[in-house]
Write a protein that binds this DNA or RNA. Structure first.
Ligand SMILES: [Mn+2]
Ligand SMILES: [Mn+2]
Ligand SMILES: [Mn+2]
Ligand SMILES: [Mn+2]
Lengths: 218, 218
DNA sequence: AAAAAAGTTTAGACATGTCTAAAAATTAAG
DNA sequence: CTTAATTTTTAGACATGTCTAAACTTTTTT
């Protein structure tokens, strides 16, 4: 049996390895989970024993096929629950992450399958993040982070890569949500901040915000 | 913060005290939870410290107002989730208990409130058991266990007081579900087993089965 | 009222998961 | 290439929750 703590570590390792490639460092995991490097070292040994990760002391860690499968399943559950909470229980997209962190650990294959069916097998969650299918396949998109676009480009917001409430509340305040049409007007070299146009209003946002907005260009 | 284990103990104490009255014994709790008397003693001290129970060594335990409120809330969540699983995810009434045992521990008042609204504030769960309201009030019914009825009485099955799969599967096999019309034909003094009529078929069931069927007489 | 049985609590151990502080290894600087 | 800074691991402690075995209370029998 895999424990709740183990699931969270596997999920963290997968999340990190999706952004950067190569082996995942102890510190990176500690940062993601909000724990100490010492705890991570302890846990990596246990995950190694269970053949969920490949781990060499001081050399970082990667998921085994089995570990990747568990991690993907947790993310699948997380995003299906978030979809349920927003679509059916009328939660705001900024309020669902913490509850989904709990729901993702409920153990019942049957439950996940039926929830998936109930929701009509959604491909993306309320933040536009892809929901892995039962077989582990993750839907792809041809989107680019807003900060990588060139000046003058038009596009549509397809997703966000951060689902913390303060960030999502700020987006809502800026009138940005999934589907919003955006035009990149100007990039400021000094701080990489950018000017954008949203439904005829001009706004200015930091690079930190822009990099978490996934855009599909027209 | 109240832990998952503590919630299960409080729920067990409430369940027991609903059936029998007076103080709840250590052994009864151990039996209900499926643990040892030693573990129960340990936990009762902790619950005492948190003012969730009133406990005197060797003299049994009872819930404080605070403890009762937590226990009731756990039962409310359990039954709301069971209702969701049966009504919306098309689970059979015998398949939901174990999953609900997990879901009942998800921490979010907002979630419970919204789930309740989503389900149209149901008063009874799929097994006919009353769902406590947000304020803790438990819907009442004027029902009697089938084994307490006298011969010749007609009535309708309003609920079951056991939700283990083998029992519920057996009921399904007997064509008994919530709403089924039943007539008590004969009580056998030797073993308290009884003969019943269900939609023109005669059946014979043990006292053990009959005592878990709640009947509303016509 | 003493002895036996049943019920309950304590003592000691163990598993899981976490933390701080210290030691060891790796990487970056000088 | 040696020292310094950073990263990672180990050692030791602690909290939670569980268990078995032994001790203690209460209840039941004789
Ligand atoms: Mn999330
Ligand atoms: Mn989690
Ligand atoms: Mn149940
Ligand atoms: Mn439970």
């Amino acid at each position: 049996m895999i424990t709740l703590a183990e699931e969270n570590y596997l999920k963290a390792i997968l999340s990190i390895s999706l952004n950067f490639d190569g082996k995942v460092s102890t510190n990176a995991i500690a940062g993601e989970i909000g724990t100490t490097a010492a705890s991570v070292s302890d846990m990596l040994k246990k995950l190694q024993d269970k053949k969920l990760v490949k781990y060499k002391k001081y050399k970082g860690v990667s998921l085994t096929k089995k570990g990747n499968s568990f991690a993907t399943s947790v993310i699948r559950k997380h995003r299906l629950w978030e979809t349920f909470l927003v679509n059916n229980l009328n939660f705001d997209w900024g309020e669902v992450h913490d509850v989904a962190e709990q729901l993702e650990h409920i153990k019942s294959e049957e439950l996940v399958d039926r929830l998936d069916t109930f929701l009509d097998c959604p491909k993306f969650d309320p933040h536009g993040e892809p929901i892995p299918a039962k077989d582990g396949k993750i839907p792809t998109t041809n989107t680019i982070p807003l900060n990588k676009l060139s000046e003058g480009t038009n596009g549509k917001v397809m997703g966000v890569t951060l689902d913390e409430k303060p960030f999502l509340d700020y987006l809502t305040k800026l009138n940005i949500s999934i589907g919003t049409e955006i035009k990149l007007l100007e990039k400021i070299p000094f701080d990489q901040s950018i000017s954008i146009k949203i439904v005829n209003t001009k706004q200015h946002i930091s690079n930190d915000v822009a990099k978490h907005l996934l855009i599909k260009t027209n």
